[in-house]
């Protein structure tokens, strides 16, 4: 059963990701990206990361992708403004590089896995739940957590300044 869910989610994830890349219309790309993010949330659930699965859907598929769609609609690109896509040489080298990268990543994962201890660690009851995430976030990772608030403030100010009418 777990295998079945994994393979369905994985297939949706891979196909949606490929469609993000090949769609000509940015709106379609954004919608397929939302599908990919939701499929990934299912994978998070399979990996006992319940809190992250919820955050993935609310923050990523909800907030960030809505921002993308807003901007796409704000720009209001016409068909001819999609621009010339996929020059031949660029596509060739892009695909070549991607294949090489995939092979390299596969090799790294394979070598790394052979050095890993085989047994899975036993999980506590609430692994990945809100309680443990919060505890970790407010004790061991308190400083990075506080820094993200500064980061978000800077991003907010930066976005407002950059998007002003007169730059």
């Amino acid at each position: 059963m777990e295998f079945l869910i994994f393979f369905i989610a994985a297939i949706i994830l891979v196909f949606a990701s490929v469609l993000v890349v090949v769609q000509r219309n940015p709106v379609h790309s954004a919608l397929f990206l939302i599908a990919a993010l939701c499929a990934q949330a299912i994978l998070y659930l399979l990996l006992n990361a319940t809190f992250l699965a919820v955050i993935q859907i609310i923050v990523y598929a909800g907030a960030i992708m809505v921002l993308f769609l807003f901007v796409i609609m704000l720009l209001n690109l016409k068909k001819d403004e999609f621009g010339p896509e996929r020059r031949k040489a660029q596509s060739f080298f892009g695909i070549l590089f991607a294949v090489l990268l995939l092979m390299e990543l596969g090799l790294v994962v394979k070598i790394g896995l052979s050095k890993l201890t085989p047994a899975d660690a036993s999980l506590s009851f609430d692994f990945g739940g809100v309680q443990l995430v919060g505890k970790s976030l407010f004790t061991d990772y308190l400083f990075p957590f506080e820094l993200t608030s500064v980061l978000l403030l800077v991003a907010m100010v930066g976005a407002i300044v950059l998007a002003k009418k007169k730059l």
Binding site: V21, S29, F68, L75, F82, G83, R86, A98
Partner: peptide, 10 residues
């Protein structure tokens, strides 16, 4: 996708 596409949003 980053290498092949020319559209900034994509």
């Amino acid at each position: 996708g980053f290498l092949v596409r020319r559209n900034l949003l994509v």
